[in-house]
Design a protein around this nucleic acid. Structure first.
Length: 266
DNA sequence: CGCAGCGCCTGAAGGC
DNA sequence: TGCCTTCAGGCGCTGC
Protein backbone atom coordinates (compact mmCIF):
# COMPACT_ATOMS: atom_id res chain seq x y z
CA UNK A 1 0.00 0.00 0.00
CA UNK A 2 2.22 2.78 -1.21
CA UNK A 3 1.79 5.92 0.89
CA UNK A 4 3.94 9.03 0.84
CA UNK A 5 7.19 7.39 2.07
CA UNK A 6 6.90 4.53 -0.40
CA UNK A 7 6.09 6.82 -3.33
CA UNK A 8 8.95 9.14 -2.35
CA UNK A 9 11.33 6.15 -2.27
CA UNK A 10 10.16 5.13 -5.73
CA UNK A 11 10.58 8.72 -6.94
CA UNK A 12 14.18 8.89 -5.74
CA UNK A 13 15.03 5.61 -7.42
CA UNK A 14 13.24 6.40 -10.64
CA UNK A 15 14.58 9.88 -11.24
CA UNK A 16 18.14 9.00 -12.33
CA UNK A 17 16.82 6.21 -14.53
CA UNK A 18 14.20 8.25 -16.33
CA UNK A 19 15.26 11.89 -16.60
CA UNK A 20 16.50 12.74 -20.09
CA UNK A 21 15.07 9.58 -21.61
CA UNK A 22 12.78 9.73 -24.63
CA UNK A 23 9.73 7.46 -24.73
CA UNK A 24 10.05 5.56 -28.00
CA UNK A 25 7.00 3.34 -27.61
CA UNK A 26 4.43 2.42 -24.99
CA UNK A 27 1.55 0.06 -24.38
CA UNK A 28 -1.02 -0.81 -21.75
CA UNK A 29 -3.60 -3.17 -20.40
CA UNK A 30 -6.90 -2.45 -22.16
CA UNK A 31 -8.47 -0.26 -19.49
CA UNK A 32 -9.18 3.47 -19.30
CA UNK A 33 -7.15 3.48 -16.08
CA UNK A 34 -3.94 2.57 -17.92
CA UNK A 35 -4.42 3.43 -21.59
CA UNK A 36 -3.21 7.06 -21.24
CA UNK A 37 0.32 5.61 -20.86
CA UNK A 38 0.78 5.68 -24.64
CA UNK A 39 0.05 9.42 -24.87
CA UNK A 40 3.63 10.34 -23.96
CA UNK A 41 5.27 8.48 -26.84
CA UNK A 42 7.81 10.80 -28.49
CA UNK A 43 8.29 13.00 -25.42
CA UNK A 44 11.33 13.24 -23.10
CA UNK A 45 11.03 12.98 -19.31
CA UNK A 46 12.32 16.16 -17.70
CA UNK A 47 12.00 15.29 -14.00
CA UNK A 48 10.26 12.97 -11.54
CA UNK A 49 8.20 14.80 -8.90
CA UNK A 50 5.76 13.71 -6.22
CA UNK A 51 2.58 15.24 -4.73
CA UNK A 52 1.06 13.19 -1.93
CA UNK A 53 0.89 9.63 -3.26
CA UNK A 54 1.07 10.72 -6.90
CA UNK A 55 4.15 10.58 -9.10
CA UNK A 56 4.25 13.50 -11.55
CA UNK A 57 6.63 13.24 -14.47
CA UNK A 58 6.92 16.49 -16.43
CA UNK A 59 7.70 15.93 -20.12
CA UNK A 60 9.44 18.25 -22.56
CA UNK A 61 6.10 19.01 -24.28
CA UNK A 62 4.81 20.61 -21.04
CA UNK A 63 2.44 17.78 -20.31
CA UNK A 64 2.81 15.56 -17.25
CA UNK A 65 2.64 11.81 -16.90
CA UNK A 66 0.78 11.01 -13.67
CA UNK A 67 1.16 7.62 -11.98
CA UNK A 68 -0.74 6.52 -8.88
CA UNK A 69 0.40 3.16 -7.51
CA UNK A 70 -2.93 2.33 -5.86
CA UNK A 71 -2.54 -0.65 -3.53
CA UNK A 72 -0.14 -2.93 -5.39
CA UNK A 73 1.54 -0.79 -8.05
CA UNK A 74 5.28 -1.17 -8.76
CA UNK A 75 7.62 0.43 -11.25
CA UNK A 76 10.77 -1.27 -12.46
CA UNK A 77 13.21 -1.09 -15.33
CA UNK A 78 13.57 -4.08 -17.63
CA UNK A 79 16.44 -4.83 -20.00
CA UNK A 80 15.92 -6.75 -23.25
CA UNK A 81 15.73 -10.48 -22.59
CA UNK A 82 14.31 -10.08 -19.06
CA UNK A 83 11.00 -11.92 -18.65
CA UNK A 84 7.85 -9.77 -18.66
CA UNK A 85 5.96 -10.04 -15.38
CA UNK A 86 2.40 -11.38 -15.37
CA UNK A 87 0.83 -8.20 -14.00
CA UNK A 88 2.34 -5.52 -16.23
CA UNK A 89 -0.46 -3.01 -16.84
CA UNK A 90 1.60 -0.43 -18.75
CA UNK A 91 5.10 -0.10 -20.20
CA UNK A 92 7.26 2.59 -21.74
CA UNK A 93 10.16 1.68 -24.01
CA UNK A 94 12.94 4.22 -23.48
CA UNK A 95 15.92 5.22 -25.57
CA UNK A 96 18.94 3.34 -24.26
CA UNK A 97 17.02 0.09 -24.80
CA UNK A 98 15.38 -0.16 -21.39
CA UNK A 99 11.69 -0.51 -20.65
CA UNK A 100 9.90 0.98 -17.65
CA UNK A 101 7.23 -1.49 -16.55
CA UNK A 102 4.22 -0.65 -14.40
CA UNK A 103 3.06 -3.76 -12.50
CA UNK A 104 -0.20 -3.70 -10.58
CA UNK A 105 -1.67 -6.98 -9.37
CA UNK A 106 -4.99 -5.55 -8.22
CA UNK A 107 -5.28 -2.75 -10.76
CA UNK A 108 -6.16 -0.11 -8.16
CA UNK A 109 -3.54 2.21 -9.64
CA UNK A 110 -4.05 4.76 -12.33
CA UNK A 111 -2.16 6.47 -15.13
CA UNK A 112 -3.03 9.83 -16.66
CA UNK A 113 -1.47 12.44 -18.91
CA UNK A 114 -2.43 16.03 -18.18
CA UNK A 115 -1.46 19.58 -19.04
CA UNK A 116 -2.31 22.41 -16.67
CA UNK A 117 -5.87 21.22 -16.17
CA UNK A 118 -6.24 18.67 -13.37
CA UNK A 119 -10.03 18.54 -13.34
CA UNK A 120 -9.94 14.93 -14.54
CA UNK A 121 -8.07 14.01 -11.34
CA UNK A 122 -10.09 15.69 -8.59
CA UNK A 123 -8.17 14.13 -5.70
CA UNK A 124 -4.87 15.41 -7.08
CA UNK A 125 -6.38 18.80 -7.97
CA UNK A 126 -7.69 19.29 -4.42
CA UNK A 127 -4.78 17.77 -2.56
CA UNK A 128 -3.98 19.31 0.84
CA UNK A 129 -0.54 20.53 1.91
CA UNK A 130 2.59 18.43 1.62
CA UNK A 131 3.49 17.32 5.18
CA UNK A 132 7.07 18.65 4.86
CA UNK A 133 5.98 21.99 3.41
CA UNK A 134 6.02 25.07 5.70
CA UNK A 135 2.36 25.66 4.85
CA UNK A 136 1.48 22.51 6.82
CA UNK A 137 1.36 23.91 10.34
CA UNK A 138 -0.27 22.74 13.59
CA UNK A 139 -2.68 25.68 13.27
CA UNK A 140 -3.71 24.66 9.79
CA UNK A 141 -4.20 21.01 10.79
CA UNK A 142 -6.30 22.01 13.79
CA UNK A 143 -8.52 24.35 11.78
CA UNK A 144 -9.00 21.67 9.09
CA UNK A 145 -9.91 19.05 11.68
CA UNK A 146 -12.38 21.38 13.37
CA UNK A 147 -14.37 21.75 10.16
CA UNK A 148 -15.51 18.12 10.18
CA UNK A 149 -17.22 15.79 12.62
CA UNK A 150 -15.88 12.65 10.95
CA UNK A 151 -13.65 10.28 12.91
CA UNK A 152 -10.17 11.71 13.22
CA UNK A 153 -8.62 8.75 11.44
CA UNK A 154 -10.98 9.16 8.50
CA UNK A 155 -10.00 12.80 8.26
CA UNK A 156 -6.30 11.88 8.16
CA UNK A 157 -7.04 9.57 5.22
CA UNK A 158 -8.78 12.44 3.42
CA UNK A 159 -6.09 13.77 1.08
CA UNK A 160 -7.53 17.29 1.32
CA UNK A 161 -6.48 17.56 4.98
CA UNK A 162 -2.86 16.55 4.41
CA UNK A 163 -1.38 14.86 1.36
CA UNK A 164 0.09 11.38 1.40
CA UNK A 165 -1.13 9.73 4.63
CA UNK A 166 -2.64 6.24 4.25
CA UNK A 167 -3.74 3.55 6.64
CA UNK A 168 -0.33 2.55 8.01
CA UNK A 169 1.00 6.02 8.78
CA UNK A 170 -2.39 7.22 10.07
CA UNK A 171 -2.35 4.47 12.71
CA UNK A 172 1.30 5.21 13.53
CA UNK A 173 0.73 8.96 13.87
CA UNK A 174 -2.37 8.56 16.05
CA UNK A 175 -0.56 6.08 18.30
CA UNK A 176 2.41 8.40 18.64
CA UNK A 177 0.19 11.39 19.43
CA UNK A 178 -1.91 9.36 21.91
CA UNK A 179 -5.19 10.06 20.11
CA UNK A 180 -8.04 7.58 19.75
CA UNK A 181 -8.70 6.98 16.04
CA UNK A 182 -12.47 7.18 16.56
CA UNK A 183 -12.34 10.62 18.21
CA UNK A 184 -14.36 13.25 16.40
CA UNK A 185 -12.94 16.35 18.03
CA UNK A 186 -9.46 16.90 19.39
CA UNK A 187 -7.97 19.71 21.45
CA UNK A 188 -5.55 22.25 20.10
CA UNK A 189 -2.60 20.64 21.99
CA UNK A 190 -3.62 17.22 20.64
CA UNK A 191 -3.67 18.61 17.10
CA UNK A 192 -0.20 19.96 17.68
CA UNK A 193 1.04 16.56 18.83
CA UNK A 194 -0.64 14.95 15.85
CA UNK A 195 1.02 17.39 13.46
CA UNK A 196 4.45 16.55 14.86
CA UNK A 197 3.66 12.83 14.78
CA UNK A 198 2.55 12.90 11.13
CA UNK A 199 5.74 14.64 10.05
CA UNK A 200 7.90 12.30 12.15
CA UNK A 201 6.37 9.00 11.04
CA UNK A 202 6.49 9.98 7.37
CA UNK A 203 10.09 11.16 7.68
CA UNK A 204 11.10 7.92 9.39
CA UNK A 205 9.26 5.95 6.72
CA UNK A 206 11.28 7.66 4.00
CA UNK A 207 14.56 7.23 5.85
CA UNK A 208 13.93 3.48 6.12
CA UNK A 209 12.97 3.04 2.50
CA UNK A 210 9.22 2.66 3.05
CA UNK A 211 7.08 -0.06 4.66
CA UNK A 212 6.62 -3.45 3.00
CA UNK A 213 3.87 -5.69 4.33
CA UNK A 214 3.28 -7.60 1.16
CA UNK A 215 3.51 -5.94 -2.20
CA UNK A 216 5.51 -2.75 -1.97
CA UNK A 217 8.93 -2.77 -3.69
CA UNK A 218 11.23 0.05 -4.71
CA UNK A 219 12.44 0.58 -8.29
CA UNK A 220 15.27 -1.91 -7.67
CA UNK A 221 12.68 -4.54 -6.67
CA UNK A 222 13.67 -4.49 -3.00
CA UNK A 223 11.31 -4.24 -0.02
CA UNK A 224 11.47 -1.39 2.48
CA UNK A 225 12.74 -1.74 6.06
CA UNK A 226 10.27 0.45 7.95
CA UNK A 227 7.92 -2.46 8.77
CA UNK A 228 10.43 -3.50 11.44
CA UNK A 229 10.14 -0.11 13.14
CA UNK A 230 6.36 0.34 13.34
CA UNK A 231 4.92 0.78 16.83
CA UNK A 232 1.27 0.17 16.03
CA UNK A 233 0.13 -0.93 12.56
CA UNK A 234 0.15 -4.71 12.24
CA UNK A 235 0.88 -5.21 15.98
CA UNK A 236 -2.64 -6.01 17.28
CA UNK A 237 -2.35 -8.52 20.11
CA UNK A 238 1.20 -7.40 20.94
CA UNK A 239 2.18 -5.17 23.86
CA UNK A 240 2.09 -1.41 23.46
CA UNK A 241 5.67 -0.17 23.50
CA UNK A 242 4.66 2.81 25.63
CA UNK A 243 2.40 1.33 28.34
CA UNK A 244 2.46 -2.46 27.91
CA UNK A 245 -1.29 -2.77 27.27
CA UNK A 246 -2.31 -5.18 24.52
CA UNK A 247 -2.87 -3.34 21.23
CA UNK A 248 -6.33 -3.87 19.77
CA UNK A 249 -7.77 -3.93 16.28
CA UNK A 250 -11.13 -2.48 15.31
CA UNK A 251 -12.80 -1.16 12.20
CA UNK A 252 -13.17 2.60 11.80
CA UNK A 253 -15.24 3.59 8.76
CA UNK A 254 -14.40 0.31 7.03
CA UNK A 255 -10.64 0.66 7.63
CA UNK A 256 -8.75 -1.84 9.75
CA UNK A 257 -7.34 0.14 12.67
CA UNK A 258 -4.84 -0.78 15.37
CA UNK A 259 -4.59 1.29 18.55
CA UNK A 260 -3.73 1.13 22.24
CA UNK A 261 -6.87 1.15 24.40
CA UNK A 262 -4.93 2.61 27.33
CA UNK A 263 -2.77 5.37 25.91
CA UNK A 264 -5.16 6.29 23.11
CA UNK A 265 -8.25 6.80 25.25
CA UNK A 266 -11.02 9.00 23.96
C1' DC B 1 -21.63 20.82 -0.15
C1' DG B 2 -20.36 17.09 3.03
C1' DC B 3 -20.25 12.58 3.66
C1' DA B 4 -21.64 7.57 3.95
C1' DG B 5 -21.68 3.60 1.24
C1' DC B 6 -20.40 0.86 -2.49
C1' DG B 7 -17.55 -1.17 -6.29
C1' DC B 8 -13.34 -2.06 -8.26
C1' DC B 9 -9.52 -6.04 -8.17
C1' DT B 10 -6.57 -10.32 -6.97
C1' DG B 11 -4.00 -13.32 -3.97
C1' DA B 12 -3.46 -14.97 0.62
C1' DA B 13 -5.35 -17.09 4.46
C1' DG B 14 -8.68 -19.52 7.10
C1' DG B 15 -12.67 -22.77 7.65
C1' DC B 16 -14.68 -27.11 6.78
C1' DT C 1 -6.34 -31.94 -0.46
C1' DG C 2 -9.45 -28.74 -2.30
C1' DC C 3 -13.14 -25.73 -2.54
C1' DC C 4 -15.35 -21.77 -0.73
C1' DT C 5 -15.50 -17.43 1.82
C1' DT C 6 -13.39 -13.51 3.73
C1' DC C 7 -10.17 -9.92 3.90
C1' DA C 8 -6.90 -6.20 2.51
C1' DG C 9 -7.82 -0.82 1.10
C1' DG C 10 -7.18 4.09 -2.10
C1' DC C 11 -10.09 6.35 -4.63
C1' DG C 12 -13.95 7.35 -7.97
C1' DC C 13 -18.62 7.55 -8.09
C1' DT C 14 -23.51 7.84 -6.52
C1' DG C 15 -27.09 9.53 -3.91
C1' DC C 16 -28.96 11.42 0.31
Amino acid sequence: MPELPEVETVRRGLRPLLVGRRILDAGSHPSPKFEPASQVVGAVAVDVDRRGKYLLIPMDDHRRLIIHLGMTGRLCLRTPGDPVGPHVRAWWHLDGDRTLDYHDIRRFGRIAVVGEDLSGLPTLAQLGPEPFCPSFTPERLWSELRRSRSHIKTQLLNQRVVAGVGNIYADEALWRAGINPASRQISRPAASRLHAAIVAVLDEGIRHGGTTFRDYRNVAGRPGLNQHRLDCYGRAGAACRRCGETLRRRVVDARGTTFCPRCQRR
